[in-house]
């Protein structure tokens, strides 16, 4: 390697391993160092979490947290590329940890094989610099949002269904970005909520959105580029169309990030109680 400045803390092996990132103009050794000193929490080790975890594990990130309460099922494998036939029946966090460690043995990995609740989430989220919402239901999305706002963490959120995906970064304080509740103060009626189990999803749509989540995480942690904040990317895989919409700013009336918030100590359920049918109704755990 030539032209790599010497005033950095990377080992020769790291310089070699990450050389194709280090030589990027706008990146360089100092971005690589920031990545090494950073941590990210991936909530949901499924369709979105798989590519997000694989790319963050590969990138030279220092520490990765993985949260899921589920086990690998055969019907996951068509889209959840971090798992293997041999890990069917194991917990998803264990399966994901195995693959990540095979790719990068230097990465520190924390696993949380549990269902997130308003009781336990703050204690987990606080240990990470950025949070990735890769979950599959409305209730958990409100829960994660509230925890991120209360903990002042940026939240990279993606969702997919059928051939479509959506991506944005919530609670990006540097730009006065909105939170999930600013856009959706009320939860949708239960009968309007579809899940991947209900109506299906195509694997590569997860791959696209999950990769973009990892990209936003790397940009955010290394402070390069323009974070997708105050904007939302809409992806339609069937027509291969991409559209960026402009979102509202942080709302003073927001129940969690507003000027007079009602949610102050710990996450709250969304105002209109409802549950998804992808997993046992979670109203009781909140």
């Amino acid at each position: 390697m030539t032209n790599i400045v010497r005033n950095h803390s990377l080992s020769n092996a790291e310089v070699q391993r990450y050389s194709r990132q280090l030589i990027l103009s706008d990146f360089g050794v100092h971005a690589q160092e920031r990545l090494k000193d950073s941590s990210a929490l991936i909530i949901g080790c499924g369709g979105l979490g798989s590519p997000a975890a694989l790319y963050l594990a590969s990138s030279g990130l220092g520490r990765l947290g993985l949260v899921d309460h589920d086990e690998v099922d055969m019907s996951n494998l068509h889209r959840q590329i971090i798992h293997r036939e041999s890990t069917v029946g194991k917990t998803k966090v264990e399966s994901a940890q195995l693959t990540c460690s095979q790719i990068n043995s230097s990465l520190k990995i924390d696993t949380y094989n549990l269902l997130l609740t308003s009781e336990n989430i703050l204690d987990i989220v606080k240990h990470y610099d950025v949070i990735l919402d890769c979950t599959d239901n409305v209730i958990t999305r409100y829960l994660i949002n509230d925890a991120c706002v209360l903990s002042h963490k940026p939240l990279i959120s993606a969702s997919v269904i059928r051939f479509e995906g959506q991506l944005t970064v919530w609670n990006y304080l540097e730009k006065n970005g909105p939170c999930y509740r600013c856009l959706y103060p009320q939860a949708p009626p239960a009968e309007t909520v579809s899940t991947c189990s209900d109506v299906g999803v195509l694997g590569p749509v997860c791959g696209t959105l999950g990769s973009l989540q990892a990209l936003e995480a790397i940009k955010l942690l290394t402070k390069i580029g323009d974070v997708l904040c105050n904007r939302m990317l809409l992806v339609d895989g069937l027509s291969m169309s991409f559209r960026t919409i402009k979102l509202r700013h942080r709302q003073p009336t927001c129940a969690v990030c507003g000027t007079n918030p009602s949610i102050v100590d710990r996450p709250a359920p969304p105002p209109a109680g409802q549950c998804t049918n992808d997993q046992p109704c979670r109203k009781n755990v909140l």
Binding site: Y184, P188, P189, E191, V193, T244, I245, K246, R248
Partner: peptide, 25 residues
């Protein structure tokens, strides 16, 4: 219609964009 409209507005969980800009703006 209740899956799209609630009262005089759209139901919660639907965003409205005018020329790709959030109607709240």
């Amino acid at each position: 219609p209740e899956l799209f409209i609630q009262g005089d507005s759209v139901r919660p969980g639907i965003l409205v964009l005018v020329n790709d800009t959030d109607w709240e703006l």
